[in-house]
Simulated scan of single mutants.
Amino acid sequence: MASFDWSDEENDLIVGDYFDMLRMEIAGESFNKAERNRMLQSRLTTRSRGSIEFKHQNISAAMLGLNQPWIEGYKPMSNFQFNLVEAVVRQLDKPHSWAANEFLKQAHKGSPRSANFSVQEDIPLWIGPPPTVSNAPPPVEHTLLERILRKYDVAERDAANRALGKAGEERALKHEVQSLTLAGRTDLAKKVQWTSETEGDGAGYDIASFELDGSPRLIEVKTTNGWERSPFHISRNELAVAEERRDSWCLLRLWNFAKEPRAFEIRPPLDAHVSLMATSYMASFASENRPLQT
């Protein structure tokens, strides 16, 4: 069997098949991996069953690096051509992709495809400890992840996906109302506000909720389909509000959102939990900054 590099056409074919299986897995539909492997062998005539299997694991590694979920049973494995990542990005950018905005919109309309998702919404959101060096799963080839991050701003891709962000905020809002209600504070549950929807993004937080004692709980929600250590963007205004209201502000990080939403919270100071890196600068014309000449 062939040992030469995979072509773009071959990558596009196997990545497209992988995305179809992932869509089915997320929808709770069954599929036969061995059967699909045989189908691919009939079209990729120079590739063996084992090479196709390993390529599926390579795709899982690329998905991890791009803040996306991967298929259960295809453990991420690195050591592959970088053009595979490019093939995954091409698939992610297709409007009919499972990861497109319309997919997430349908997940909140009670469509047959979202039956599992609706059940999850009735279950309190799982909130665990923030990731640390000791409790995080080992990364897949750290240099590979860094290379993907350098070429593709994966955090920006999440931030730009408005449907993903809105779906995450809605999930967090329902969790807050449900938690207060179950704790016997229906009076507070009725006052929880989706601030980013009613007032816009300028408040520095998305949800205005309450602790059980009635003190304010201001929640900034960051959502990803990827794993718990996926990077995310945070604005200067959000950082400022976090510092000004550090007793009440928290960041709720939702991850693995498309499959089984989980979360953790971090509280100010944020640099005690994450590394903050400036990614943009304010540019002004030199004449505006020049001192007046006398």
Rank of each mutant, 00 (worst) to 15 (best):
residue 69 P to R: 06
residue 72 E to W: 09
residue 17 D to Q: 14
residue 34 A to H: 13
residue 133 V to C: 00
residue 17 D to H: 09
residue 102 E to M: 14
residue 96 H to W: 12
residue 36 R to A: 01
residue 85 V to F: 02
residue 15 V to N: 06
residue 27 A to C: 09
residue 107 A to T: 02
residue 63 M to H: 11
residue 69 P to T: 03
residue 139 P to I: 07
residue 111 S to F: 03
residue 125 L to R: 07
residue 143 T to I: 06
residue 88 V to E: 00
residue 48 S to R: 01
residue 123 I to W: 09
residue 53 E to S: 15
residue 84 L to R: 00
residue 44 L to R: 11
residue 114 S to Q: 02
residue 65 G to E: 11
residue 87 A to N: 00
residue 135 N to L: 00
residue 17 D to E: 15
residue 53 E to H: 15
residue 37 N to W: 11
residue 14 I to C: 07
residue 15 V to P: 04
residue 62 A to D: 09
residue 115 A to G: 00
residue 30 S to T: 10
residue 35 E to I: 09
residue 126 W to K: 15
residue 136 A to W: 06
residue 78 S to Y: 11
residue 90 R to Y: 09
residue 98 W to C: 05
residue 43 R to V: 14
residue 111 S to M: 13
residue 16 G to M: 04
residue 137 P to A: 13
residue 23 R to E: 13
residue 90 R to T: 04
residue 110 G to C: 07
residue 128 G to E: 11
residue 122 D to G: 13
residue 46 T to H: 14
residue 80 F to Q: 04
residue 9 E to F: 00
residue 127 I to K: 09
residue 95 P to R: 01
residue 101 N to W: 12
residue 114 S to Y: 09
residue 145 L to N: 04
residue 26 I to N: 08
residue 114 S to A: 15
residue 45 T to R: 12
residue 48 S to Y: 07
residue 136 A to R: 12
residue 108 H to A: 10
residue 11 N to T: 01
residue 57 Q to R: 12
residue 66 L to Q: 07
residue 64 L to G: 13
residue 141 E to H: 14
residue 27 A to P: 05
residue 120 Q to V: 02
residue 101 N to I: 11
residue 82 F to H: 11
residue 71 I to S: 01
residue 94 K to E: 10
residue 11 N to V: 09
residue 142 H to M: 13
residue 46 T to L: 14
residue 140 V to S: 11
residue 137 P to R: 13
residue 139 P to S: 01
residue 10 E to P: 07
residue 78 S to Q: 10
residue 131 P to L: 01
residue 65 G to F: 11
residue 60 S to W: 02
residue 59 I to H: 10
residue 11 N to S: 03
residue 44 L to A: 03
residue 59 I to F: 03
residue 20 D to Q: 15
residue 56 H to I: 12
residue 115 A to H: 11
residue 133 V to Y: 08
residue 99 A to C: 13
residue 42 S to N: 15
residue 95 P to N: 05
residue 132 T to C: 04
residue 74 Y to E: 12
residue 129 P to V: 07
residue 93 D to A: 10
residue 40 L to F: 04
residue 77 M to H: 15
residue 98 W to Q: 00
residue 64 L to C: 14
residue 23 R to D: 14
residue 108 H to W: 15
residue 125 L to S: 07
residue 61 A to K: 04
residue 131 P to T: 01
residue 65 G to L: 06
residue 51 S to Y: 07
residue 134 S to W: 10
residue 127 I to C: 08
residue 121 E to I: 01
residue 114 S to W: 10
residue 53 E to R: 13
residue 142 H to L: 15
residue 58 N to Q: 11
residue 34 A to I: 09
residue 115 A to P: 00
residue 140 V to R: 10
residue 144 L to Q: 06
residue 39 M to G: 14
residue 39 M to I: 08
residue 133 V to K: 10
residue 125 L to E: 08
residue 108 H to Q: 14
residue 53 E to V: 14
residue 40 L to V: 04
residue 24 M to F: 03
residue 41 Q to H: 12
residue 86 E to V: 12
residue 22 L to P: 03
residue 36 R to S: 05
residue 79 N to I: 12
residue 49 R to A: 15
